[in-house]
Write a protein that binds this DNA or RNA. Structure first.
Lengths: 152, 152
DNA sequence: TATTGTTATACTCTATAACTATA
DNA sequence: TATAGTTATAGAGTATAACAATA
C-alpha cells in the first residue's frame, strides 16, 4: 500500500493539515475565551477592522446562514462592540461597523493572537513558513468550494 | 515597521496559519455535516478508531470539560455510534468504544475527508507539504499549552 | 480526601422555515 | 418577484457548580 518515494502519503498529509488546523484553533479559542469571546466573535472583530460590511457580506465571510449572523451581531451589539447602521443606497441593507471599544478590542486580540501563535511559528523554519503562506494565498485566490476569508 | 528581509512578518505568518486553519475547518465541517455530524463528533470517531479511552481521556484529547463529554457521548450513543462500558480495574471509570456502525462511519469519514482535502493538498508542492508535516509533528511532540491530539 | 463521571443550569452558535420591508 | 434581514424554534456544543460513587 505505501511506497518509498518522497511525496508523503495522502493520509499523512491530510492528518498533518488537520493537526495543524486544530492546534491553531485551540490557540484562537483560548485567546478569545480570555476575553469571553468565541472564535466567531474574534473573527468578526477581525473582519470589521477594515470593513463596514452588510449582514449578508458577513454571512459570506463566515460561511454562516444570515439568521445566524443576526444573533451574532445581536450579542456583539449588546456588548457594545459593534453597531448597526442603515445603508443610504438601499434601505433593505444593514451595515455593521465597530465601535471604538470593538476596534480597540480587535487590535488587542490581533496582538495577543500573534503572541500566542509564536509557540507554533517558532517551531517552523523560514522555508516552512513561506510554504504555508504560499498555500494559504493559493486557497484565497481560488477557494475550495466556499469563501475562505479570515483576517484575524 | 516592516523590513526587507526574507523572513515573513509575524503578522503575515499568523494570518497565513489562521487562513489555512479555517480552510481546513470548513472542509471538515462540510464533510461532517453531510452525515449530520459536528466536527467534534467527527474527531470523536477518529479517536475511537484505534482506542477505547475513558471519558476523562476523551476530554483531554478534545480539550473539553468532562461535563461536555458526557453530552457528546450521550448524543453519539443515542445514534448508535458508540457504547459505554465499565472498566474492570476501576469502577469509577467508563470506557468508550465504537459500535460496528461507528467504526464503519469513521472509516468512511476518513476517506471522504481525504478526498475533500485534495483541493487543498493539490495546491501545495511536495516541499510545502513536507514542511507542514514537520510542523504538525513538532506540535504533537511538544504541544503548545494543551494536548493537540487529532487523528481524523 | 481525591478522582470519575453525571446532573442542573445557562449561554453561545447554528440552521430551517416563515415572515416583513424594500427593491 | 427577488433580496435583505429578522423572528420563532430547535438542537448541538460548551462551561460552571454541585453532586454521587468509588478509590
Amino acid at each position: 500500500m505505501s511506497s518509498e518515494i518522497d511525496r508523503p502519503t495522502t493520509s499523512s498529509t491530510v492528518d498533518a493539515l488537520a493537526k495543524l488546523s486544530f492546534a491553531v484553533q485551540i490557540v484562537l479559542t483560548r485567546v478569545a475565551a480570555e476575553h469571553d469571546l468565541s472564535v466567531t466573535q474574534l473573527r468578526l472583530l477581525g473582519i470589521l477592522r477594515d470593513r463596514t460590511p452588510s449582514m449578508a457580506a458577513i454571512a459570506d465571510y463566515l460561511a454562516l446562514d444570515r439568521s445566524s449572523v443576526t444573533g451574532l451581531i445581536d450579542r456583539a451589539e449588546r456588548r457594545g462592540l459593534v453597531a448597526r447602521r442603515s445603508s443610504a443606497e438601499d434601505a433593505r441593507v444593514t451595515l455593521i461597523e465597530t465601535t471604538p471599544a470593538g476596534l480597540s478590542l480587535g487590535s488587542q486580540l490581533a496582538h495577543e493572537v500573534s503572541v500566542a501563535m509564536a509557540a507554533i511559528v517558532n517551531k517552523a523554519s523560514d522555508d516552512d513558513l513561506a510554504g504555508i503562506a504560499r498555500l494559504a494565498n493559493a486557497l484565497i485566490d481560488e477557494p475550495a468550494g466556499r469563501a475562505v476569508a479570515s483576517s484575524i
